[in-house]
């Protein structure tokens, strides 16, 4: 059975400009009926047909899991990225038909928690929109700390504050407001679970501070989809299917493999779920590993690669695909 193959035909019902960087997209089933129920923290993979190229980007569902008449996602425009967010911002209009995957959750709540402590940075707020809705519906104990650049970019801070009042704490850079993380972490009751979603630097800071403060690894959950980075083109031999491919500058290795007609399994397309792990048969050059799945030992060994986010520079690379 292949993961990631369960697709849903949807129609874009609304596109809302949230602020100068963020647009919100609403999807309903093209053929009517409610969309699958999901759990807070889940994402869908959105298929984009961009001038003969297919992009598959994961976005967190931010609508309430309690109401699945439509799904909503929010996309932050990344002018330096590979073009997925630009495509969403420029090309996707109401009435357009698209294909999305079934929801998959790689950032789920630990329902054993006596308290859920959430820390968001920037567009990392989106999974918490769904998680807070899920928890609030059942009287769950949560508290959200949200860091952003300024009021204009405090995406959904108004909505969250209106819904949850004092459970939402906002920190605006331009007001010099700063999250005192050490203090926050020192006053949480036993049985609290910590969730963080935001830029890589923030995730690193929160994890390191929590570890230093004696929070066991099991209690710290983080969502970090590494978006595939552009890079120099490279050539790859797919030994099993006996095909040679070229990975373009703005293309991931996984996308290039798919473009050659292969269907390796995937869930996250962001280097965390492990589904597309691929064995290296031989290589002459250097790997640019960008995933969070393989161990450092795996990275050093030169025996494995995560084609969704990692690249290669050098003379030759042969993969078991």
């Amino acid at each position: 059975m292949r993961a990631g193959s369960n697709r849903i035909d949807v129609t874009v019902t609304d596109v809302v400009v949230v602020n100068e960087l963020v647009k919100r997209f609403h999807f309903e089933r093209t053929h009517g009926g409610i969309l699958p129920t999901f759990s807070g923290g889940a994402h869908v993979v959105v298929e984009m047909r961009d001038e003969g190229k297919t992009r598959l980007n994961p976005y967190s569902l931010m609508s309430s899991p309690l109401d699945t008449r439509d799904y909503t996602i929010s996309v932050r425009r990344d002018d330096a990225g590979r073009g997925g967010s630009l495509f969403m911002h420029r090309e996707v209009k109401p009435g357009q038909r698209m294909v999305i995957s079934n929801p998959v959750n790689l950032f789920s709540l630990d329902l054993r928690a006596k308290k859920h402590l959430m820390i968001a940075g920037g567009i990392g707020i989106t999974p918490f929109m769904a998680q807070t809705a899920q928890l609030a519906g059942r009287g769950g104990n949560f508290e959200l700390h949200y860091a952003c650049r300024n009021d204009a970019l405090a995406t959904y801070a108004d909505v969250l504050t209106a819904r949850y009042d004092r459970r939402i704490h906002l920190y605006r850079d331009d007001h010099g407001e700063k999250l005192d993380l050490e203090k926050l972490l020192s006053t949480q009751p036993l049985g609290t679970y910590l969730y963080v979603c935001g830029p890589a630097g923030m995730i690193k800071w929160v994890r390191a501070t929590a570890a230093e403060a004696g929070w066991p690894d099991e209690t710290v959950h983080f969502e970090h989809f590494a978006a595939p980075q552009p890079g120099k083109p490279f050539d790859v031999r797919l030994a099993v299917s006996e095909v040679d491919i070229r990975v373009g500058e703005h293309e991931s290795l996984l996308e290039a493999i798919e473009a050659a007609g292969l269907n390796p399994p995937y869930l996250c397309r962001g280097g965390v779920c492990g589904q597309c792990e691929t064995n290296v048969i031989s290589y002459d050059g250097k790997f640019l590993h960008n995933d969070h799945w393989l161990s450092e030992e795996d990275h050093r060994s030169g025996c494995k690669i995560m084609p969704c986010v990692s690249r290669f520079e050098g003379k030759s690379l042969t993969l078991e695909r």
């Binding site: 059975m1 993961a3 369960n6 129920t37 079934n102 492990g274």
Partner: peptide, 13 residues
């Protein structure tokens, strides 16, 4: 276990 952890809704096994 690896298979089951990746099992998606709508795709029972």
């Amino acid at each position: 276990l690896k298979f089951l952890m990746a099992l998606q809704q709508g795709q029972p096994a």
